[in-house]
Amino acid sequence: MSKPRSKVFFVLEDLEVEVPHGTKLSEVVEASGADITFGCKSGTCGTCRVRVVDGNRNLSAPTPEERDFLSSLGAADDERLGCQFCVLGDVSIDYIGS
């Protein structure tokens, strides 16, 4: 029984990756070599900040750390921390970096 699959599109480098539903973005990046950098991986450094160009609804909800980090920065609604979410449907992602 295979899980439903989602498409992740990395805008910066025009890279399209297909992944099982529920895969962490960090795993997608590691497996595909996408050009996104991770720092602390605990939601406190912001190195992996991305902009969700499309499909914001298709991501797992922010963890409290991610929510607090982004709100302390006054980040826009379409910004997320790449180390903190899973892909639950098709998304397009652009790298902001910190």
Partner: peptide
């Protein structure tokens, strides 16, 4: 083994620098 193997690069676009 899906979990890892099934992350598939569908297309690496022309934007390659």
């Amino acid at each position: 083994a899906e979990s890892r193997d099934k992350i598939v690069v569908v297309r690496r676009g022309d934007k390659k620098v």
